[in-house]
Every structure is written in C-alpha cells, then in structure tokens.
Simulated scan of single mutants.
Amino acid sequence: MAKMRQADAERDAQQIVELTEMAHRTGEELAPIIRAVRQDAEAGRVPERAQVDKWQQTMRRLIAQFADPPSGMTATNVARGGLRSAVDQAAVAVDSVALALAGPTTGRAERMQLAARQATLAVTTWSVAATQLDQVNIDAGQGHQHVHLDVGEVEGALGPDGSAEGAGG
C-alpha cells in the first residue's frame, strides 16, 4: 500500500508541474483576450471580424489542451477542472462577441456587456483554480506558484497571496 501511495504522489507531483506550466502558458494567451473583451465592452465598441476569428481560433486551441486530462489526486483534478471551466467560460465570452458583431447594431452594446460579464466570470473562476493550484504546489513541496490572470482588478476574483514564487516549498 505504501508503494502505491508513493507512486501516486510521484505521478501527481509531475502532473502538478505540467499543469502549472500549462496554466502559465494558457494565462499568457487568455489574459489579453479577456482584457480586450472587457475594454471593448466598456468603450462601447466591437472588435474587427479578423480579431474575433483569431480569438476564436485561440480559444479552440486552449480548450483542446484540456480535452483528455490525466487522472490525478483530487486536489490537482479540482485545479485542472477549474482552469478548464474558466477557459470554457472565456470561449463563451468570445463567441458572444462574435454574435454581437454579426447581429444587428441595435442591442450590440448590451450583447458586448454580456460578453464582458462572461469574461469576468471566467477570470473569477480562473482565480479560484489558480489559488487551488498554488496550494497544490505548496503541498507538493514546490512552493508558491501564481498563475492568476493579468487582467486588472476584477470584483470577486481572488488575487495571488503576495508570497514570493517558489517560497514555502
């Protein structure tokens, strides 16, 4: 039994490292999209079709990386599931922008506001998952790992705890 627990812990430690690296990469691509959706809605504008198409391509790729997750320990699975849900929510926000762009000009500002709300929910969901992933890294002896999205202040979103990266490992 002890060998099985040790094997599970080693497998999970590797998954934590891989998930943290993926979260960093994903966040670097996701944050500018979310920031732009929110800024466009706030300014009462819609982006160009080519930009929205590019965002949708990026979102499909980001979603695909979560398509076949490995089975890990519960805490790691929770972090992974939260990140995946946040990416899915951000994709819905981008799709809403596409609908706002394709639809009539009447009501466009309201549809963009809805997209911004969806993007905000994605940030909030990501922040919970990022906090979980930080704790998982600490528990695995790798110290603090902050993968929170750099999108500015978002009401209800959790921020990094202020500890130095790698501290507490």
Rank of each mutant, 00 (worst) to 15 (best):
M112D: 01
V94C: 07
L30M: 07
M112V: 04
V147K: 03
D8Q: 15
Q6W: 11
P32H: 05
V147F: 06
D68T: 12
R35W: 06
I63G: 10
P104Y: 09
R11Q: 15
A102Q: 11
T106L: 13
R108F: 00
D161L: 07
R111M: 08
R38W: 02
D88P: 00
N77P: 10
V151C: 02
A119N: 02
Q113G: 07
A41R: 01
Q65L: 10
A98H: 09
D88M: 06
M59L: 09
R25Y: 07
R84D: 10
A90Y: 07
K3N: 11
V94T: 10
T120D: 08
H146Q: 13
R38D: 00
V52P: 03
G81E: 06
A98I: 03
E29Y: 08
S127L: 05
A13Q: 14
A109C: 02
L19F: 07
A31D: 03
T106P: 03
R45M: 12
L158W: 09
P104R: 15
L114K: 06
T20Q: 07
D8C: 06
G143W: 05
D68K: 11
E48I: 07
N77Y: 02
A7I: 15
G166L: 02
E42Q: 08
A157H: 10
A100C: 05
T131W: 01
M22R: 13
A100P: 00
E29C: 02
D53G: 08
A90L: 02
D53I: 05
T106Q: 14
S85P: 02
E10C: 05
V87I: 10
L149C: 02
L30A: 03
P70V: 12
S71R: 14
A41C: 01
P32M: 04
P160C: 04
R84M: 12
A140P: 01
G166W: 06
A41P: 01
R117I: 08
A167T: 05
P70R: 12
G162F: 10
V154W: 03
A109D: 11
T124W: 01
I63L: 11
S163T: 11
G103A: 11
Q39I: 04
A116I: 05
Q14P: 07
D40G: 08
R49D: 09
Q14F: 12
P47C: 06
G81D: 13
T120Y: 01
G103S: 13
R35M: 03
E21G: 12
Q56F: 12
V52I: 15
D139C: 00
R38Y: 03
N77W: 03
A7P: 14
E110L: 06
R11Y: 11
K3Q: 14
I138E: 10
V52S: 05
A13M: 09
H146W: 14
R60Q: 11
E28S: 14
Q57Y: 10
A43N: 08
L99E: 09
A122V: 00
G168V: 03
Q51F: 10
S71M: 14
D150Q: 12
L83Y: 10
T125W: 03
E110Y: 04
S85A: 13
T106I: 09
A31C: 05
V123T: 01
G44T: 00
G156M: 11
S96Q: 14
A50V: 08
E48M: 12
H144R: 15
T105S: 08
A79F: 05
T74Y: 12
S85N: 14
E29I: 00
P160D: 14
G159A: 08
V94N: 02
I16T: 14
T105C: 01
T26P: 08
G82E: 06
G44Q: 02
